[in-house]
Amino acid sequence: MYTFEKKVVWITGSTTGIGKMTAIGFAERGADVIIHGFNDTENGEKLLKHLKELGSDALLVDGDVSLKKDVENIAKQIQDKYGKLDVLVNNVGASITSSTLEELEEDVWDKVIDVNLKSVYLVTKEALPLLKGEENTRIINISSAVERTGGTMKDLAYTAAKGGVSAITRALAKQLIDFNIQVNAVAPGLIDTPFHKTDAPLDSYDWIINRIPMKKAGQAEDIAGAVMFLASNHANYINGEIIEVSGGRRVS
């Protein structure tokens, strides 16, 4: 349905889960994909090998995208290898730990905001020179349905960060359209990924699944499909939108 031949795509946080399936989807459709992890060499190398087997001139980069120096280093590697960027997917994210307001420590709040929101600012700013001048360039941010629902009782920092991701998406959509860059976001609902091995087991979310009209959690491929749609020519008149992929939770 889509082709990304001769396109260069950078996906942050892409050695596992949603990022991994998105990388595979782009590679299967002809893109050269930059995959990114942080101290996850084993998964990164396995994925890199797979992408190259699919014909992608792929690149694996490593670094903490909440740190300016690491992001600058990654951007330089992309510049040196490809000299451009067509699609940026700001996917990296983590809840770090679950806690109520009373339990939430300042350092945890700062870390959650840095990983989920500050990274979008830093990565997008460094990627901008690589995106400028190309045709139909896209930025797709991964927000979350929690920014609309308020999340769970112990997701305050993560919910606030993802609310910021949706807000920065709309703001950047206004600012960057003059450079022919469209900015949109995908807001996943409950998705069956390794995220829930560190946050909480998926079966502990039965109370959410019962409220989803489709009565099931989504898969990483469901989010990858929405991202590729927004990156494709089928989305040429979409800008500043947040597409929720949650099995109908918006109407429940």
Rank of each mutant, 00 (worst) to 15 (best):
A224P: 01
E241N: 01
K216D: 09
K215S: 05
K215I: 10
Y205D: 01
Q182E: 06
A235E: 01
A235L: 06
H196L: 05
D192W: 08
N210Y: 09
G240M: 03
E241S: 06
P188F: 06
M214F: 11
A185L: 12
Y205W: 13
Y205M: 10
D206G: 13
N233T: 01
D206K: 15
T193M: 09
S232P: 05
A231W: 02
K197V: 08
K215M: 08
A231D: 01
I238V: 05
M228D: 00
K197P: 01
P188D: 07
L202D: 06
E221W: 04
V183S: 11
W207P: 04
S232N: 01
A185Q: 13
Q182V: 00
W207M: 08
A187Y: 11
E221S: 05
V227T: 02
A217W: 09
R211Y: 12
D206I: 15
V186M: 07
W207A: 12
A220T: 11
N210W: 10
G189Y: 08
D192Y: 11
V186G: 03
A220G: 02
I191P: 04
D192C: 10
V227G: 00
N239V: 09
A185K: 11
D206S: 15
H234S: 00
N184E: 10
I238N: 00
A231S: 11
A226T: 02
Q182D: 02
L190V: 13
Y237W: 01
N239L: 07
A235Q: 03
M214Y: 12
G189W: 10
G189D: 11
Y237Q: 04
D206V: 15
N239P: 05
Y205A: 08
G225T: 07
T198V: 15
A185D: 14
H196Y: 14
M214L: 14
Q219I: 05
N210P: 07
V183D: 11
N236K: 04
G240L: 00
N180R: 12
G240C: 05
K197D: 12
I209C: 14
Y205L: 10
S204W: 06
F195D: 05
A235Y: 05
G189Q: 09
M228F: 03
S204F: 02
